[in-house]
Simulated scan of single mutants.
Amino acid sequence: MKPFPPPPHRAALHPVLQWGILLAASVLLSAGFSAAGFPAALLLGPMLAGIGLGVAGATVRVPKLPFLGAQALIGCLVAHAVNASIVRTLLADGWLMLAVVLVTVAASAAVGLVLTRIRLLPGTTAAWGSSPGAASAMVAMAEEFGADPRLVAFMQYLRVACVALSASVVARLCVGGTPAPVAAPVGETGLLAVAGTLAVAVVGAWLGRVLRIPAGAMIGPLVIGAALHATDLASMSLPAWMLALAYAGIGWTVGLRFTRATVRATVSALPGVLAATLGLIALCGAWAWGLTFILPIDLLTAFLATSPGGLDSVAIIAVGSGADVSFVLAVQTLRLLVVILTGPLVAKWIARSAG
């Protein structure tokens, strides 16, 4: 008897139609989150819409240049809220910030070691995927050391999505039930002011990339913009529609990485990976709660500061929820640098220990 023929391959929808569906779903979800009072509704809506379409088989992706542009605009947004106090914060509480970072890195290493030893994922994939941040760098380096880059990317961006969702829920509970504005303009949005801000974004992103700074497209404009803003030489100014595009660019980039192929490849390991991710977030949350008894900071600020990854999305939520942006960005930036420096060493140590 002849075997049944394979099911016919369904052709993907035209890219224009895919973008239209993605945009419509993003608007509806963003409006719902905004009505419910969630900070960063314009980040969560596109991210969840992107996850849904990515898993459904969408082929569209956010091109690299627009994504870098979105990061640069977020850097300018944060620069408007950050001033010289971030330096004072680092000098005053630098040792405690380092302790926060080391706890997060140690917890992530423990999760990676457990996942590797129980063989939930093949080879050193779990070790690289559990690194708490620098997702794109970890994915790039993982392939060089024999790990499956698809599974590493899935673990990394699953954590980023969970961090964004959990941080937004915590912010919603801490801020209260006031509906969040869809997007509020930053500074005086005159033509010259906006043009100056865009110049900072372009130059800062270019320098960040040329100097190979981690998350340079965001950190470059943030540093330059914060310096200009703190010294009253310039003020970061962004209209609401531009911020909405930047939020959507970040959300779509994260969401569309959840493809049907990666979900199918990790379906057996998904419960364990999700449990490990939520466990790591809970551990960092407990550490954040403890910090409120040591430092004069609120729970939301501590939770955002200790969140294991997603610098751009955490920055958006911090600015939109009224948290102490200086403290959050200081800890998150320090964590990013530590992960970049120690990530490969920790991953190789986990692989040897589990082998």
Rank of each mutant, 00 (worst) to 15 (best):
K2A: 11
F4P: 04
P5I: 01
P8F: 00
R10F: 11
P15L: 11
L22H: 03
G32T: 14
P46W: 04
L53Q: 13
G57W: 11
V60N: 07
R61S: 12
K64S: 11
F67M: 06
L68N: 13
G69E: 01
G69N: 01
A72F: 06
V78R: 05
A81C: 01
V82W: 07
R88F: 09
A92G: 03
V100T: 07
L113C: 01
R119F: 02
G123H: 07
T124G: 15
T125Q: 12
A126V: 06
G129D: 10
S131R: 12
S136G: 03
A147F: 06
D148Y: 04
Y157E: 13
R159L: 04
R159Q: 02
L165K: 07
A167L: 13
V170P: 05
P179W: 10
P179M: 11
T189E: 04
T189N: 09
T197N: 09
L198T: 07
V200S: 04
A201S: 00
G204I: 13
L207E: 02
L211Y: 08
M218S: 02
I219W: 05
G220Q: 04
I224T: 06
D232A: 15
L233E: 05
L233F: 12
P239I: 13
L245I: 13
G251M: 12
G255V: 10
G255A: 07
G255N: 07
R257Q: 09
A261Y: 09
A269H: 05
P271N: 01
G272F: 03
A276F: 00
T277M: 05
L280C: 06
L280K: 02
I281H: 10
A282L: 15
L283I: 15
T292Q: 12
I294L: 15
A302K: 00
T306S: 15
S307C: 14
G309H: 10
S313E: 11
S313C: 09
V314R: 05
V314N: 07
V319T: 14
G320R: 01
S326T: 06
F327P: 03
L334V: 15
R335D: 08
V339Y: 10
I340Y: 06
I340G: 02
T342R: 02
